[in-house]
Nucleic acid binder design. Structure first.
Lengths: 331, 331
DNA sequence: TTGAAAGCGGTACCAA
DNA sequence: TTGGTACCGCTTTCAA
C-alpha cells in the first residue's frame, strides 16, 4: 500500500497540514520542519495521490482528445502535436478513438468527466453531443470540424488550396476533371470539392464530374479508378485524400494507363507513401493543428475569456510526377 | 456547477446512500424509490464525478501507455490496438510520449499515479524506473522491450525472421551483406542483427559488415548509402527499419544505382510507403501487439496471478522488388 | 428498504 | 509557524 499524507505526518511528527504545505512549497514553514518532512517523504517514497489532490483542487490536470481513428498518418500526427504541447503545459492526455462505435456519445461524455478540457475532431460525435458538453461548462475545441455555436475551432485551409490545385491542373492542360470521394461525409472534403468546383467554373471549357466512393481507403480508390476505366477516363482524378489517390494509381498502373500522360491523379494529406508514389497532393500542418488546439484549450481552461477563436492553418500544394503537363498528343 | 449526489438526494427526498445504490444498480431499493431517484437524475442531468468515485473505489478505471514517439506509423498502430481493447474493457487510456525528454522518469511516475496499469514500450525510460513502478504494486507490461525481472512482456519476433530474411538474400546470390543501423540503441534491432548474423555465419562465403547510423530516420538511411557508395557497395543493405531503407533507396536512385541488380535493400516494419517503394521488409502485427498488451494488463489489474507471461508475436517476411534475384552478371 | 456516518487522500481556512 | 478541521464527491458498512 502506498503511504498517505497521514503516514508521512506521523513519521515526521507534524500535522497533515504541514506536510501539505511542504509539498505545495508554501512559504510559512520553518526550515527545520521542512527538512524533517522532506526526509520522511523521501524515506517512505511518498507520492501524493493524484486523485485526492484532484478532488480537493477540483481539477484533473488532464486533457482529452477524441478522434475517429488513429490508423491513418493524419490523426496520429495531430494527436502527437497535441500531446507534446499538453505535456509541456503539465497536463496528461486522455485519448478516445470512436471508430464509428454507436456508443461514442456516452464514451465522450464519460471522457469529458475525466478532464478539464476536450478536443473533438472530425466525424466522431454529432453536434448535439458537442453542444451538451460545452454547455456544461467544459472548455471544448473543435478540430478539423466545422464550427458549432461559439465553440473555438481549429481547421486546415481547404477551399483556397483546392482551388489552386484545380487551377494548376487546368493550366497544365487538363480539361475534364473528376472529383473522387464523397463531400457529404466530411466537412473537409466538402470544402475541397467547393474549391475545385470554383476553379473549374472559372476556367473556360473545363468540366467537373463527381465520383462517389465507399469510404476513403485504398480499395475505394482502386474501385473508383475501375469505374472510370469502364465509363471513360477523365483528364484528371482529383481525389479527396491520398489513400484514394494511391488506390487509383495502383489500379491505373495495373491496367497500363499512363499517369500523368493519359490521366493525372492528385490526393490530399501528403502521407509518407505519397512521396514514394510521386503523388501530387496537399500538405497539412498536422502537428501544428494539434499543437494549436492544445494551446487554445489551455487558455480556456486557465479561464481566459473573449470572443470565440477560429483558427485556419495554411496548407501547401505539393506538385509531383502524378500531374505533370498534360500530353496534348493524347487524344 | 454540476449537481452532486447530494443535490440529487435532496431533489428525490432520499439519502445519498440511496442515490448511490440506484446508480450502482444495487438490489435492495424499492421500485418506486428507484423511479423517484432516476427521474431526479434525469431532470438534473446528473453524472457522477469520476474523481469522487475513483477515490472511494480506489481505482482509476484508466490505463496508461508510454512510448517514445508517435510519428512513425509503428507506434500509432500499437497505441490504436491498445486503445481499442482498453476501451472495450471500459477503461480510459492515458498516453505519454517521452520523445527523449530527460524528465521522462518523472513524467512516467506521474502517469503511473493516474492509472491502474501501465504499458511501457521501447526506449522511453531506464529499467530502474520500470522496476520502481512495478515494485510499488502497479501492474506493468513491457512492449517491444526486453524482459526486466518478472514483469510481463509482449514482443514481436525478430531473430528468426531476420535469419529468414538474410537466408533469402543469400539464396538469391548476395554474398556481402551490410547491416544498416545501430543494434545497441534498440533491443529489437539487436535481435535483428543477431538473426542476420547467424544466417550469414551459416552460409559459406557470405560476409556481414555493420554500418552505424545516426538514428533511424530517412536522412540517416540516405547518409548510410552515401557512405557505402564511397567505400564500396555491398551486395545487400539490410536496414534496421523501413525508414532507413527508404532513405537508402532514394540516395541510390539519385546516383543511378540499380536496385536490386547492383545492390538489394531491405527494411523492417512494412510501413505503407514500403509498398509503394517496392521494399522488401518484415511485417509486424502492430495492432495485435497493443491489443495483447492491453488484455494482459487487464488480467493483472483484475488481480489475476500466475507466472510472468512473455508473449512473442510472429512476424512475416514480405518480399518485394528491392531484393529480386541477384544479377550474377554484375561483376 | 433506508439513513447516518466513516472513510478514500488530499487542500486550505481559521485559530492558536 | 503550526495544528485542527471542514470540505471535495462518492462508496459502503452498520443500524435502524
Amino acid at each position: 500500500m502506498q503511504p498517505t499524507i497521514r503516514d508521512v505526518a506521523r513519521q515526521a511528527g507534524v500535522s497533515i497540514a504541514t506536510v501539505s504545505r511542504v509539498l505545495r512549497e508554501h512559504e510559512n514553514v520553518k526550515a527545520s520542519t521542512r527538512a524533517r518532512v522532506m526526509s520522511a517523504v523521501a524515506e517512505m517514497g511518498f507520492t501524493p495521490s493524484s486523485l485526492g489532490r484532484s478532488l480537493a483542487e477540483r481539477r484533473h490536470a488532464a486533457n482529452g482528445i477524441v478522434f475517429p481513428d488513429l490508423s491513418g498518418p493524419y490523426y496520429a500526427e495531430v494527436v502527437l502535436g497535441y500531446e507534446e504541447v499538453a505535456a509541456e503545459l503539465g497536463r496528461s492526455v486522455l485519448i478516445l478513438s470512436t471508430h464509428g462505435r454507436k456508443a461514442a456519445p456516452e464514451m465522450v461524455t464519460e471522457l469529458a468527466g475525466r478532464c478539464d478540457g476536450l478536443v473533438i475532431l472530425g466525424r466522431t460525435v454529432p453536434d448535439s453531443v458537442v453542444v451538451r458538453i460545452a454547455s456544461r461548462g467544459l472548455p471544448v475545441v473543435l478540430l478539423a470540424r466545422p464550427q458549432v455555436g461559439d465553440i473555438d475551432s481549429v481547421n486546415a485551409e481547404n477551399t483556397t488550396t483546392a482551388r489552386a490545385l484545380a487551377r494548376h491542373l487546368v493550366e497544365d492542360g487538363h480539361r475534364r476533371l473528376a472529383f473522387v470521394g464523397d463531400p457529404t461525409t466530411s466537412p473537409d472534403v466538402a470544402e475541397r470539392w467547393k474549391g475545385v468546383s470554383a476553379a473549374v467554373a472559372r476556367a473556360s471549357g473545363a468540366t467537373l464530374t463527381h465520383v462517389p466512393t465507399d469510404g476513403f481507403g485504398i480499395d475505394a480508390g482502386a474501385q473508383a479508378a475501375r469505374g472510370l476505366l469502364d465509363s471513360g477516363l477523365p483528364d484528371a482524378m482529383v481525389c479527396a485524400n491520398d489513400e484514394l489517390a494511391l488506390g487509383a494509381l495502383e489500379e491505373l498502373a495495373r491496367e497500363g494507363v499512363d499517369v500523368p500522360g493519359r490521366v493525372a491523379v492528385t490526393g490530399w494529406d501528403d502521407v509518407m507513401a505519397a512521396r514514394y508514389a510521386g503523388l501530387t497532393t496537399v500538405r497539412q500542418p498536422m502537428r501544428e493543428l494539434g499543437a494549436t488546439a492544445a494551446r487554445l484549450l489551455d487558455a480556456r481552461i486557465r479561464g481566459e475569456r473573449g470572443e470565440p477563436e477560429h483558427h485556419i492553418l495554411p496548407t501547401e500544394l505539393v506538385v509531383r510526377a502524378s500531374c505533370a503537363h498534360h500530353q496534348e498528343e493524347t487524344r
